[in-house]
Write a protein that binds this DNA or RNA. Structure first.
Lengths: 177, 177
DNA sequence: AGTCTTGGTTCACTGACTGAACTGCTGCTG
DNA sequence: CAGCAGCAGTTCAGTCAGTGAACCAAGACT
């Protein structure tokens, strides 16, 4: 047990998982990482999360092997999902699905498609067209019928993640590069 | 929007879902509810959660339609999952699965079986024997190879939920009835 | 040299969580 | 009918975590 335990039940994998991703903001950070956000400042402005909290969450996620932290070509810092982090996609998908079902009457806010053939994915991530379980890097995410194009901030990062894009593909902001 | 928003992104169903189930303890309470816990005191002792926090979480979950609160035959209070609450099982399953994969080297801590035919369920909840997607009330949960029988408290509630049982089936404690 | 960008840290403030004790109601039980 | 037990909370003082704004250091750019 690497962490001081926050939940009593040491014999439950739900408790164990929540010790990593159950804190406030953590899953939102991971969602952004799936959407291609990699820079400290981009997480901070897009999520409007206090920078001190962001620092501590990123440290925890790196320590737990969910993200890697390394310097990119330009000498800047990049946070990226590891394989272990990528395996959190079903968790994000399940929560998004539940939120869509009960809090988005006009339809899903974001749809998943198989980037190869354009087929919609079902709840388990299976392509309706080709029937295969689509690996995360081949998933394209795009605004769905429940998405309100007027209801998000017009910063470059939000613009990028609200445009159809493949998961894990890095966003390109004006200043990057 | 019934709640004061805790996450900035109003256009994301993940943020919306986390406003309900993203607070500390909430998913653990829901897990217990799936395992058949229905009484205030049973949640409190099994989870070792401060009673004030439990009160506020239960209120939120009832207000959001995840749980119902009503008096049982004996005049005591019962909290039960609604249909909306039951649809959180994929979320719990996904988190448990991730926790099992990365924090339980000796195998899953709890296995899911189809109560009708005894078949193991895969990650999407499909029975390996009959191939059908098993509805929650037909799921039997039982200790798996990663479960450590010495590492849980020996109160009646913990004993009950660590014994093979169907989801949603109420636990029976010595004093109840 | 001076300014910009980036990735943080610091700090005072507030709000949430903790744990233990207490309350009030209901239903037995002698 | 008094008294006790079980249950579902409430109260409260202490602590800890999250908030938001300001500040800081290092490297790039002009």
């Amino acid at each position: 047990m690497t962490l001081p335990s926050t939940y009593a039940d040491r014999n439950c994998s739900l408790a164990r998982a929540l010790e990593i991703v159950g804190e406030r903001w953590t899953l939102m950070i991971i969602r952004d990482a799936f959407f291609g956000v990699r820079r400290f400042g981009d997480f901070a402005t897009q999520l409007k999360i206090p920078r001190a909290v962001l620092t501590s969450r990123l440290k925890l996620l790196v320590r737990e092997g969910v993200l890697t932290r390394d310097d990119d070509a330009a000498g800047s810092v990049e946070y990226r999902l590891t394989a272990k982090g990528v395996e959190l996609w079903p968790v994000v998908r399940a929560l998004m699905g539940w939120g869509d079902t009960f809090y988005s009457p006009s339809g899903v806010k974001r749809a998943e498609r198989h980037d190869r053939d354009g087929g919609l994915l079902d709840h388990e991530g299976r392509c309706q067209d080709c029937g295969s379980v689509v690996p995360v890097p081949e998933i394209r995410i795009e605004p769905g019928p429940g998405f309100d194009p007027d209801d998000f901030d017009r910063d470059p990062v939000s613009d990028a993640i609200n445009t159809p894009r493949r998961l894990l593909e890095p966003i390109t902001t004006p200043h990057a590069r």
